[in-house]
Amino acid sequence: MTLCDIFAGMGARRRTVTVYNADPVPELDAYFTDWNVELRFDRLPGDTDEAFVTVRAGGEFLGSVDIEVLTPLLEPGGDRAWDDEPLPPTDAFLRLLDGTTFRTDDRDHLLAVSREFEDRAWRVGDGHLHAGFQRPAAFRTQCDAYARLADRGLDVHLYADGAWDAPGVEGASVTTTTDGELGRYWFVAFDDGDRPDDTSQACALLAEEHQPGSYVGYWTYDPEWVRDLTDYLTETYGE
């Protein structure tokens, strides 16, 4: 396994959401902007006009829901009637998307996700935090932040390709190589230990630089995928 394999695996966790017998909904397209999801609108032949939604992973059918289930997603800030009518079972739809990764090619967005994960690690206050920003020089503006995270009680591991020429980060381990792999990928992964998956705060971002300053990145909150990445880093680059 390599970082390339993990990156490809995260990208392969793509879902296809198909809305049948309904007109395209821009709000739904906007909702899925960052999801690794292909959104389609289609109509079935015949007289039926019943609208519904299906979810597939590759060629595998995962399930379908009534289109009304999507209403809370399209109107997250809408007024509630405060009556006794049950809310549509949106969770049934979102469960069909379990394990889906998120994707962007916007560098600023990737940076914001990195900051979110660092903040999450800070709030939890323990666990293992792995960060690779490709080149040692990229850590120059990050050293104080990661020293604070280490001081907080986190087990911090930093990775880069090339000779380390950034200031030292007290309390953190630093690994450098010249094999090129660490120079191609930007990652931040927080493994919060042995918490049950339903309470886990684990998260990971892995982005590949396709050309200078241009990235495609995926991120996930799936503890299994986070452990795959952190285990690989520990086994490959650990002492």
Rank of each mutant, 00 (worst) to 15 (best):
M1D: 04
L3H: 01
L3V: 10
I6T: 09
F7V: 02
F7T: 00
F7A: 01
A8K: 10
M10D: 01
A12D: 13
R13N: 02
R13S: 04
T18G: 02
V19M: 13
V19K: 00
N21Y: 01
N21H: 05
D23V: 04
V25K: 06
V25R: 13
P26L: 06
P26T: 10
P26S: 04
A30P: 00
W35P: 00
W35V: 01
V37Y: 03
V37A: 05
E38C: 09
L39Q: 11
R40D: 02
F41P: 09
T48E: 08
F52A: 05
V53I: 05
V55R: 05
A57P: 00
A57L: 07
A57Q: 15
A57G: 12
G58C: 12
G59P: 00
L70R: 07
L73M: 15
L74E: 08
G77D: 15
D79R: 14
D79W: 06
D79T: 08
D79P: 03
D83L: 08
D83N: 12
D83F: 03
E85R: 14
P88C: 10
P89S: 07
L97A: 10
T101Q: 15
F102R: 14
F102V: 07
D106M: 03
H109N: 05
A112Y: 04
S114T: 10
S114P: 01
E116N: 07
E116A: 15
D119L: 13
D119S: 08
R120W: 01
V124Q: 05
G125P: 03
L129Q: 02
A131F: 05
A131L: 11
G132S: 14
F133V: 11
F133R: 00
F133W: 12
Q134M: 15
Q134G: 05
Q134C: 13
P136C: 12
C143K: 07
Y146W: 11
L149W: 08
A150C: 07
D151I: 00
R152D: 04
V156C: 06
V156S: 11
H157D: 06
L158D: 02
Y159N: 02
Y159I: 09
W164S: 07
D165C: 09
A166N: 05
A166K: 00
V169Y: 02
A172C: 05
S173H: 05
E181F: 07
Y185V: 03
A189E: 01
F190M: 09
D191I: 02
R195K: 14
D197W: 07
T199N: 12
L205D: 07
A207C: 11
E208V: 12
E209Y: 04
E209M: 10
H210V: 15
Q211V: 14
Q211R: 15
Q211F: 13
G213V: 10
G213W: 02
Y215C: 02
V216L: 12
V216R: 08
W219L: 04
W219N: 04
E224G: 14
V226E: 02
R227T: 14
D228V: 13
T230S: 08
D231Y: 03
L233K: 00
T236C: 15
E239I: 04
